[in-house]
Design a protein around this nucleic acid. Structure first.
Lengths: 136, 136
DNA sequence: AGCAATAATTGCTAATAGCAATAACATGTC
DNA sequence: GACATGTTATTGCTATTAGCAATTATTGCT
C-alpha cells in the first residue's frame, strides 16, 4: 500500500521547518516575527485584526506578535484617521531590509531544491501544490 | 510571476494544521501526544532516543512527550534486558485504539480532499509530493 | 443619549521546546 | 578490576507560542 498523503505532507512540513529555523537563527528572529514579516510582505497595509487572521492566529496573539515586531523596529503602526479603533501596519525600512533577506534566503533554499529536479519535475511539483491548495 | 513554492507549502501547511487541531480537540489529545502516536504507528518498538529523533525533537522534549503519553495510559515503556539504559516504547491497547481513531479521521480528511480531485489529479499530487520529499 | 458591534490590548494559564546538568549504564583500555 | 569515555534518559530552568476572558476605546445604529 502506498503512503498516505498526510504522512507525506507531515514529512515535507518537517523538512521545511528545518530550513525556516535555520534562517530565523541566522537573522536573529523568532518564528513569530519571521512569519509576521512574510505575511506583511504579501499585502501592503493591513489592520491588526487582518494581520492576525492572515497569520492564522487569535487577535490577542496577533497583537503580541505585532508588539514584538514594533519593539524590534521592524514594523510601524499608525491610527487610521477615519476609524481610530483601527491601525495600519507597515514595514519600516529596517523591516523591509529584513524581509528581503528572508525572501533571498528562502529563494536560495528553493533553488537548491529545484536544482535537484529537471524542468518538468519543477513544473509538476508546482502544479500539484497549486492543485492541492485549492482543494484543501 | 508565479507564486513561490515555499509560499504554497506554507499555505498548505496551515490548512492541514486546522484539520489536525480539530482531530486533537475531538480526541482530547495535545499536539505532542497526537504526533507521538502517529510516530509510534509508523515503526513498532523504538527507544526513547529514536522516538525523539523521529519526532524531530530534542531528547529532553521527547522524554517529556513520552511521559505524558505514559501518564495518559496510551503507551508503555519497559527496560531492555540487554541494555538497561535503553527502553522499549510500545502502544497500550488504549493507545492502539486512539491511534486507530486518529488514522481513521485523517483518512476521512484525505478522502474529502481526494473527492474534489479526479483520479489523475490524485495521482499527480501524490507523485509530486513523493518527488518533493526526496529532494528536500 | 443609549446600545450593540468591532478593534485592539492585557492578565492569565497551558503547551511547546531547547540547553545544561545529572544519573545510570555500557564499553573499551590499562 | 579500575577508570575514562560515550550513550540513554531525565530534570531544572527559561523562552516562545497560543488562546480565553475581561477590558478599553471607538464606531454606527436607533
Amino acid at each position: 500500500m502506498s503512503r498516505r498523503l498526510f504522512e507525506l505532507i507531515l514529512a515535507i512540513k518537517r523538512k521545511c521547518q528545518c530550513n525556516e529555523e535555520q534562517i530565523q537563527e541566522e537573522l536573529g528572529l523568532t518564528a513569530s516575527q519571521f512569519h509576521g514579516l512574510i505575511v506583511l510582505d504579501a499585502g501592503g497595509e493591513v489592520a491588526g485584526c487582518e494581520f492576525a487572521r492572515r497569520m492564522g492566529l487569535s487577535p490577542s496573539r496577533g497583537s503580541r506578535v505585532l508588539n514584538s515586531l514594533v519593539t524590534s523596529g521592524l514594523v510601524a503602526t499608525r491610527n487610521r484617521p477615519d476609524d481610530r479603533r483601527t491601525m495600519e501596519i507597515s514595514l519600516t525600512s529596517t523591516g523591509r531590509r529584513m524581509k528581503n533577506r528572508i525572501i533571498e534566503r528562502m529563494k536560495a533554499c528553493e533553488s537548491r531544491v529545484c536544482d535537484r529536479l529537471d524542468d518538468s519535475g519543477v513544473r509538476r511539483v508546482r502544479e500539484a501544490l497549486e492543485l492541492l491548495e485549492t482543494v484543501l
